[in-house]
Write a protein that binds this DNA or RNA. Structure first.
Lengths: 200, 200, 200, 200
DNA sequence: TATGAATGAGAGTTCATTCAT
DNA sequence: TATGAATGAACTCTCATTCAT
């Protein structure tokens, strides 16, 4: 698929324009989300719109590439965390902190990513490439946690979903009005792990 | 405010079309969210576009009215649940079930509501009319729970936010692929209350 | 022609609505000119839009009727002045004062009248009914003036045109910023009669 | 200001279309005035509507640009006349001839210009750039005339207004039905200077 | 007869996408 | 290959006019 090519060539830094465009797109999409226009990206990237269309077949694909980029940016980190020898609980906390960063740093893009992952249509390769990778790691952490008698029983996929969704852009925005942003992830991790009820 | 008027005139059944339009809008917005066009609503309502603009000053206002309608639809139920003499835990479960219904029945509108409530700009009356009402009730449930030594300590507003966001459109969609939809709310309530960790 | 009927029935005061509508239309058109909407007139007249369409075939005709009304309002006065036994010069001054009143009292309608009278298309009966009447009188005054050796030689129709156009909405507006409104007509009459050059 | 830019980029011949559009707009606006639609201009210019919007932010700005163009077209000439060493009277006659050309050549645009100059709101830079320039020159001519004992006493601004308004679209149209167009300006200048009364 | 809700053609404007230079 | 001008479909919104009540 084209995107594969794009990303590949980008990775190789074979093409400086693709990088410029993606960086610019990240900035603009972070502020305006799906309402971003191609022209705005072109201006930010100091490129012609035509150049963007040379790299990305259409706006949709550019948006995906942006999402991909952002996911990629935390992917490495998440992998490191999940493969580390931190305790399971610590891992969860770090993963949360990691997600919170996206919301803070990339504003509207977080929602774009969520939309993308939920949308039934297309983008299968995007979902698969990253999500499968991450899902496996999450699953591992969760099943490990279950084996260690730390996590409750049940289909690990359900807990994956919850972990991924406990940090959502809206929630972070709302909580940030009450509590310092840097405390938010660990607060949410705590709630996710321990629930709202008082343990006796 | 205009919206107040719209609803009022509808309630009085002063004109059938306002109802027809709102019902049609609910159907179309549920499928397409903010990408809905006025013409699509007009077709669905079997009404001219002008008729829609007679009732709603602009698309924005129509979208709000739809959100308002949907919120109104669960508002009564939520109030009943929260004011009932169920146990605090049962209340939480019922409230979750109630939210899950929106996601199932109204698809994209759930996200629209979320966007609306998070957006800083305007819509203050919408937020206030319903949200303040509900927030007070949530706060009451939570502080009651804290007094009963059932809920953990901490700023009740944080727990409100978590309760409201634990049911989000994306999560429900994803979970519904794994677990029967009717079990989803109570599962989520359980996780929200008890957390992912095993209680010992 | 329909308008003839309308006016006739109005004159007879056979129909109160037509009067109400025309009065309302005068008020609204005076402020907004051709940008006036039928609905605005309906509101001002406290009538339904349908009622307006019962009396006037279309917006165009209503606008004409308004212009007609306003012309009619000064027609009588003009006739009185021109048929009086004032000196020719005094007549000119009074006629100017009379036109100035329209501009002051009827704002945008003055321009509407001008547009109407200039437009090649249609409205012939409007033009003829009044203009012919007035033109004859103007012509008389002018030719009289020429016989009395007061006015210069030349086609009297030319001087008619100049007299009619020396008072135009724009000019009055501009002059009114410099000179008290009540002095404007006689100033303009003076200029029209004596010109800008100094008589020696 | 944007308009400045538009004109500038046109002057530099940076793009041919701005010229094409402006020329087309002149033709259509000359016939239909403010009732012109953007699509009509697009068709006349053999250009897509979007192209027009690339050059002009909105219809209003296009209309202004057209007016600006037309004024600019006579501005140079007026300046030349007024700064020449013709007699004051000759200057007035030439200026009139110059204005008459606009009416003949640009039909409805003359009225648009008048509307523009009279309208209180905005367009200040348009007014100022040209009008201030011209006004100064007019004032000079008039005060010179007064010093030479040719013009009557009084606030020069009043005579400016009269000079500018003695040639108005309506009047020219009407007179042109009676007298050859080429004689109209000098006839009007004569009337403006000498008035209707016979000098003895 | 009076009403005002409904209509829908038509206007202004935007923007993803194409393509000549 | 890069550009950005050009395109036109699509969208929102207005308002003269009609017509069921």
């Amino acid at each position: 698929m084209d995107m594969e090519f794009v990303i590949t060539s980008k990775r190789k830094d074979a093409n400086k324009n693709a990088v410029k465009i993606l960086e610019a797109a990240k900035i603009v999409f972070a502020q305006k989300g799906h309402e971003t226009t191609i022209e705005e990206v072109a201006v930010e990237a100091k490129v012609g719109v035509g150049t963007i269309y040379r790299r990305f077949n259409n706006k949709h694909q550019l948006a995906n590439a942006v999402a991909y980029e952002v996911i990629a940016e935390i992917y490495e980190e998440q992998v490191r965390i999940l493969k580390s020898n931190l305790t399971t609980i610590e891992k969860v906390k770090h993963v949360f902190a990691c997600y919170a960063k996206i919301t803070i740093k990339y504003g509207e893009i977080h929602q774009m990513i969520v939309d993308l992952l939920v949308s039934e249509k297309g983008e299968e390769d995007l979902k698969e490439s990253f999500l499968l990778g991450l899902k496996k790691l999450y699953a591992e952490v969760i099943t490990n946690g279950q084996k260690e008698n730390i996590f409750r029983e049940g289909d690990p996929r359900l807990y994956e979903i919850i972990l991924q969704n406990m940090i959502n852009p809206q929630m972070v925005k709302q909580i940030a009005e009450i509590m310092p942003l840097e405390e938010t992830p660990s607060f949410l991790a705590d709630v996710a792990l321990n629930g709202l009820l008082l343990k006796k």
